[in-house]
Amino acid sequence: MDLLDIMLDRLGRGESLAHVTILHQDGSTPRTAGARMLVFADGSIAGTIGGGQVEAMAMDMARASLRTGWAARASFDLTGGRDQGMDMICGGRLEALIEPIIDPAKLLPVLQAAQTCRQDRRPFTLLTMLRASEDENGVEIARCLRAPEHAGQPALRQGSCAGEQELEGVLREAGREPWNLVRQPGADWLIEHYRPRETVYLFGGGHVAQKIAHVAHIAGFRIAVLDDRPEFASRELFPQVELLLAPPSFANVFGLPELAREPMTDTSYVVIVTRGHRHDADILEQTLRTAAGYIGMIGSRAKREATYRKLGEKGFGPHDFARVHCPIGLDIGAQTPEEIGVSVVAEMILHRAGGPRRG
């Protein structure tokens, strides 16, 4: 389970917890803005904000917040100073929000709406208002969620932060970055834009696909597997899979009802690792007609050039082929299926992070 699922599970059982979030950082720090951790009443945790002394101090503050009920903003200096007893010299500074969740009545509807959006693969924005409390001993927090119209579903609003006009102004200032802290007179606003989790569509269920699925799951990708051989499209081979299909053939795969409900977007990662060149070429042709954000095909450079020549006869050109990562994966000298799995997922992580692509 990820942190949202854990929060909903624990709060649904009537437990209290503290939510620790890095609001922003300057310079080098173990984790960056957006890293979060849950601290429970028994002292256990889920997630991390980087470990070490910072995390230990944040855990102490989180446990204290569960006793007092006060939220707070805490600053940590990692430049080598000893005023906080810090033994880390990363060279940066960070600020974290320490939030006790003792009475979740106001928060649960927002979290449940966020979970629904994620299950529907629907984009949404979470707005968190942070304002100093009147007695200056803590922070007042209010949250709301906004989701645009999506796939025939009406726009969604949940929670209350401020008036609509003020929210629109904050959103304009925040822009489209996934994470932004907007400072305004009287309050700061944390703006989080969420897109559907990236899905890796593995075409082929052989040994390499199995290792790619395992590593991709660890890296946080959602996994879908398609193979025209039912014995290879199995949950025994792919326990991490969220979508598993065994069509009679690879013809018109994106027309399958299950994939038609999940149109290819920039969060779609197509990995072509079937048992034969002909199937790979067929799926690549179909994929190039979609808006998939990442396309990777296993094979040698000779196979790539032969495949491109055949597709060129069907009207595809250099602009189309520039979208394809082939040979797939970062060049780390991978030989075994396990090593290939690491190299492929490393390339997908680089793509997800917006890094440079290979030629």
Rank of each mutant, 00 (worst) to 15 (best):
Asp282Leu: 14
His319Leu: 15
Arg278Gln: 12
Gly317Glu: 14
Ala291Val: 00
Leu288Phe: 05
Ala302Val: 13
Gly299Glu: 05
Gly315Met: 10
Leu288Gly: 07
Met297Val: 14
Leu284Ala: 05
Asp282Thr: 07
Thr290Cys: 09
Ala302Gln: 15
Ile295Val: 12
His277Thr: 00
Phe316Leu: 10
Arg278Cys: 00
Thr274Arg: 03
Leu311Phe: 03
Asp320Thr: 09
Thr290Tyr: 02
Arg309Thr: 13
Gly293Ser: 04
Arg278His: 03
Pro318Asn: 09
Asp320Val: 05
Ser300Thr: 06
Val273Tyr: 10
Arg289Thr: 07
Lys310Pro: 02
Lys303Ile: 08
Ile283Ala: 06
Ser300Ala: 01
Arg278Tyr: 03
Lys314Glu: 04
Arg323His: 08
Glu305Met: 08
Cys326Gly: 00
Leu288Gln: 04
Arg304Lys: 10
Asp282Cys: 11
Arg289Phe: 02
Asp280Glu: 07
Arg301Lys: 15
Tyr294Phe: 03
Asp320Met: 04
Val324Ala: 08
Cys326Glu: 07
Arg301Ser: 13
Arg275Gly: 04
Gly299Met: 01
His279Thr: 11
Glu313Lys: 05
Gly299Pro: 10
His325Met: 10
Ile283Tyr: 06
Leu311Lys: 01
Ala292Gln: 02
Arg323Leu: 09
Gly315Ala: 09
His279Cys: 08
Lys303Leu: 05
Gly299Ser: 04
Ile295Asp: 11
Lys310Cys: 11
Ser300Asp: 08
Gly312Ser: 11
Cys326Tyr: 00
Thr274Pro: 11
Arg304Glu: 09
Asp280Phe: 08
Leu284Val: 00
Leu284Tyr: 03
Glu305Tyr: 06
Lys303Met: 01
Ile295Ser: 06
Ile283Asp: 02
Phe321Asn: 10
Phe321Ala: 12
Leu284Ser: 02
Gly296Gln: 11
Lys303His: 03
Gly276Phe: 01
Leu288Glu: 11
Gly296Thr: 08
Gly317Asp: 15
Arg275Lys: 10
Val324Thr: 07
Arg301Leu: 14
Ala306Tyr: 05
Val273Thr: 10
Pro318Met: 10
Gly296Met: 03
Thr274Ile: 02
Arg323Tyr: 13
Phe316His: 06
Leu284Ile: 03
Ser300Arg: 02
His277Ser: 02
Thr290Leu: 05
Ala291Gly: 04
Ala292Asn: 10
Glu285Thr: 02
Ile283Val: 15
Glu305Ser: 14
Ile295Thr: 06
His279Trp: 01
Asp320Ile: 06
